[in-house]
Nucleic acid binder design. Structure first.
Lengths: 134, 134
DNA sequence: CCGGATTTGTACGTATGTATT
DNA sequence: GAATACATACGTACAAATCCG
């Protein structure tokens, strides 16, 4: 379980546990995680430590939290193909928080910025597309 | 400045201020941010609130922090072109924390996963490449 | 529609550990 | 060794959103 003597922060140990459960399907996409207080009690941590673990997984794009509701495993969104036009280039980056809010992008989701030869650019949410070269 | 009466969390207001200073070049790439305690005193916040602001900007890939040293604005790394091979596809995502540590990728930096038609895949750090279709 | 219970968000304070300068 | 700075972890309190009977 979680061992204070190990040379790894408690909140990281909890994040590791939860991440494993998600990757192994014990926590299925769409399913609800226990509440923060419940996790705190289960693992003998204070709530701030639990929140750090949750925040870490959120920044990895694995989970989403809604105030007053709870935390659930993000379901995999179906991705639509996005062709990289000839001569265009693409960079990936994280959106700023205002940009994220404006485009309604979840925490932990990068964006793809396509730059056309003529200088114009477009931003796409990274969880809804995959780049394709036909 | 920072106004508790505004309908925006104090740490978000501080993050907005610092983000603007970075984007406008008042805080140049490579330059050092004031220490957390200094920021706390300057803006009349407690250190946890300052740390939340810092964490937010870090998750956006704007800054990096080193324990015992401080926080500085990330320099723009020169990106090398990465050709998307014919028939291949690419998805972008955040690395898990262990993956991030293993590949020595900064906080707030996504990865590009290239999937070949034969099923093999390769992962590239999102801040060192740009995708190109010749 | 309303009230209460639950859950996450924000913000404070404090203490100690550890890496860097 | 000393000073500085970030990391971890505890505790507390209240606010705000959601859900449910």
């Amino acid at each position: 379980m979680i061992d204070p003597r190990r040379d790894r922060a408690l909140y990281r140990q909890l994040a590791d546990l939860l991440r494993d459960q998600i990757n192994q399907g014990d926590l299925a996409p769409g399913s609800q995680l226990p509440s923060e207080s419940s996790l705190a009690q289960t693992y003998g941590l204070a709530r701030p430590a639990v929140r750090q673990a949750i925040a870490l997984l959120r920044s990895e794009g694995l989970i989403t939290t809604s105030r007053g509701y709870g935390t659930r495993v993000r379901d995999e969104i179906e991705r639509r193909p996005l062709e990289l036009p000839a001569g265009a280039s693409a960079i990936v980056r994280m959106p700023s928080e205002p940009e994220r809010a404006a485009l309604d992008i979840d925490d932990g989701v990068p964006v793809i910025e396509i730059r056309m030869p003529d200088g114009r650019s477009a931003v796409h949410p990274g969880d809804r597309v995959f780049l394709l070269r036909p």
